[in-house]
Design a protein around this nucleic acid. Sequence first.
RNA 1: GGGGGGUUUCCCGAGCGGUCAAAGGGGUCAGACUGUAAAUCUGAUGGCUCAGCCUUCGCAGGUUCGAAUCCUGCACCCCCCA
Length: 430
Amino acid sequence: MSDTISSTHILDELEWRGLVQQVAGPDLREHLSRSRVVYAGFDPTADSLHVGSFIPLMTLRRFQQTGHRPIALVGGATGMIGDPSGKSEERNLLAEDVLHANVEGIQRQLRRFLDFSGPHAAVVVNNYDWMKEFSYLQFLRDIGKHAPLGMMLAKESVRARLESEAGLSYTEFSYMLLQGYDFVHLARTYGCTVQLGGTDQWGNITVGIDLARRLDGVQLYGLTGPLLTRADGVKMGKTERGAVWLDPEKTSPYAFYQYWINVADEDVGHCLRYLTELDAATIAELDAARAEAPHLRQSQKRLAEELTRIVHGEAGLAVARHATEIFFGAEIENLDDRSLSDIFADVPSRELPRTRLEEGLSLIDALVESGLASSKGEARRTIQQGGAYVNNIRRTELGTVLTPADLASESMMVLRKGKKRYALLRFPTS
RNA sequence: GGGGGGUUUCCCGAGCGGUCAAAGGGGUCAGACUGUAAAUCUGAUGGCUCAGCCUUCGCAGGUUCGAAUCCUGCACCCCCCA
C-alpha cells in the first residue's frame, strides 16, 4: 500500500469542519496516519444521489485528497432489503429492474466525484456482486453463527422499531448483518479498514466491526458524520418540488444553484464546512462578512458557486449563473431555443400555433393561455398594475398585441407575471 | 315528535326590499421597500366583447316596478324541549 499521504491529517480536516460525530476503534488518528482504504455506502433508492448523500460523498473525496483510497459501495443487495435505521416504518421493496437501473445511475454519478486514477484510485463496488453468491444456508452458517443476537437487539435502531407500532420484520432486522458483512468483505478484498456514514449508520458500522473481529480477528474502524439538517432540525435537500438531486436531468443546474443561494443565514456556515472544499481561512472570512453585511449574501453565493461547480462543472455553473441573471430581470434577447429551454426547464410552458402569433396575439390572451392569469379580468388587472412582462420587459399597455417580433428566440417567448412567476410560450414554425 | 337558529362571493363573516358584485378580516395577486429573507406600506381580488353588459348570496317556486334581503316548499347543519 502506498504511503504517500498528505501533510494534513484527515481527522484534523474533518474535525474543524464539524464532520466527526462518533468514532469507533482504538486509535483512529494513529490508524489514519498512514494511507488507508475507506468506504461509504450509498442506497440505490433512486437512480440518482441527492443532497442527503452529499456529506459522505464529499467526505470520501476529502479522504482521497489526503492520500487515502476511497471505495464507494452501492447497495444493490442491501437495497433489496431496505435499511430500517432511522425509519419509522417498514419500507416497501423495490422491484428488481428498478433497483438495477438505480445502481447503474448512481455508479455513473459517483464516478464524477472521485478520482479513478493515480495511487489512490477510487473503486466503485456493488454489494450484490458478492451477496448473490451466498445461499441462505451458507450465510447462516458462515456469518449468522458469529452474530450474537443480544448485541443486535440492543441496537438503538432495532429497539426503537420493536417498541413502535410499526414493528420490524425479520427481513429488515437482517439488514445490519448484510451491511456488516459488506465491511468484512471489503476488508478481506481491498484491505479496507474504515467505514464512513451518517450518524444513522452507527449501528450498522459497529456490527461490521464486531463481525470482522469475530470472523477474522481484525480491527476495523468507523467514523460517523452529521446529517445535513437545518437549524430547526428539518432535513435539508427537500423543496416543494421534491428532493434536490445531483443528476442535472432531475434537478437542473439552475435549480440546484438556487437551492443553495436560498439557504438560511443560520445554516449556511454548516453547509460551507460540510460540503465545500474551501479552507478554514476563507470560511472564516465568509462568516465575518455574513455577520457584518448579511444582505450581501456572500456566503450563500459562494456556497452555491462551489457546489454547483463540483456537481455540474464549470459549464453547469455558467448556465446556472446566466439563468439566474435572467430570472432576476435581465432582458431576454438574442437567445436560441436550446438555451431558453435549459434556463426555463422548470417553468411551465405551452405550445400555440404559430398563426396565432402571426395574426397578432393580445397580451391579455397570452397571459391567459400561458396559465399565468386565470381569467382575462385577472390578466387585465396584472397589466394595469404593472405586473406583466414579455421577455422581462414590463408592458403596461392594455391593448398590447404580440407578434413574431416579440419572440425571444426562434420560436419562444417568455412571459412573466409579477416578480418570479414565469411561463414559456412556444410557437413552433412547422 | 315540538320549538328556535342557520346556509352569503376562495375561507371566515356583515348585510335584513332599491344607493349590493355585496362591509370587514384572512388568503391570493400585483406594486413599493428589501437580502431571491422576514416584516411593512399601497392597490387589486365573479365573468365578459369592460366608463357598459351578464351571472352570483343552499335549491325550486312566488310576491314586488325592484329580492341576498319578504312568502311557500325542499335539502342540509346547529341549539333547546320530548
